Computed example of a mutant assay.
Amino acid sequence: MPVVVVTDSSCCLDPEMVERYDIRVVPLHVIVEGRELREGVDELPEDLSSVTTSGPSPAELSEIYARALDDSDGDGVVAVHLSRLLSGTWEAARVAADTVDGPVRLVDSRNTAMGLGFAALEAAKAARGGADLTEVHDRAVTVAAAARTLLVVDRLDHLRRGGRIGTATALLGTALAMKPVLHLVEGKLVLREKTRTMTKAMTKLVDCVVDEASPDALIAVHHRKAPERARLLTEQIAARLPDASEIALSELDAVLGAHVGPGAVGVVVSRR
């Protein structure tokens, strides 16, 4: 069997793609009233306002890595995870990789959502095409580095509470009623553009996507409880980038949703 690709549930990959390319997805955790629930496995609450999140344990990752190694018949595993600056998953993955008997190559995508998903998917396609462990690893690194992730949220306090942006930035944005456009830089979420209204933020978000996209870029639009806003955003991007590949549209799952809050929209641009 070819090299097996492992990722985590922040990847936002379509389940059909996961099954087609045999990608192993490790659940992230949502903690509700002291109970630790697994994203994509356990039933999660609709209201995420009071939950906290965590990554998988080294033991969970070690079990999945070991099973993937067995299934690869010794060809190895490439594990592509969300940014180490956004989650403790990377550190747990490093510990887990040292405990299994076989080659596990780790990739810090420095990203999340489809910024991670595109990297895992393209790596899995390379594996299916017969690429060896180094080639699959390098493919994941290349695709992850080419991804640009942009985000607009209704309120900054969700990101502040989870420690994903600084308190000073969050408080300043709240005091000035800002609707900033944020983006991931080297795995960290930072301010890209300042705007005063959601309408202006959406316009600026589309401008940023156009600036980042190559003619044949892969594009994914994400949202949390904002399907109409995401649909309009998708239409605006398609109008500005008529030659782009099909734009994927999906809702963020619980872990990412808990951090960005309802009303958030984001775009991932993966340049070829």
Rank of each mutant, 00 (worst) to 15 (best):
A244N: 13
I165W: 00
T234N: 05
G163I: 08
R84D: 11
E46H: 15
V206D: 06
V209H: 05
A113M: 14
V104S: 00
P56I: 02
T112G: 13
Q236Y: 06
R271V: 15
R231L: 13
A59D: 13
R110V: 00
G162N: 13
V181M: 03
V80Q: 02
A79W: 09
P215M: 12
V221Q: 08
G130R: 07
E33R: 13
S10V: 10
V206Y: 12
R35L: 11
D22I: 03
R35G: 06
R160A: 14
R67Y: 01
D157W: 04
S270V: 14
V209D: 07
P180N: 06
D132Q: 05
T53M: 03
D253W: 02
E246D: 14
G34S: 03
L232C: 05
L218W: 13
M17H: 15
I31S: 01
A131T: 02
V221G: 05
L121Q: 02
R224E: 07
A220G: 12
L44E: 07
E46F: 14
M17N: 15
L191F: 05
G74C: 06
H137Y: 14
G266M: 04
K188R: 15
L13V: 10
A123W: 07
A97T: 07
V104L: 00
D211L: 07
V181I: 15
G162V: 10
R128C: 02
L205F: 06
M1G: 13
T234D: 03
S9C: 08
D14Q: 11
A230R: 01
L189T: 14
R67I: 09
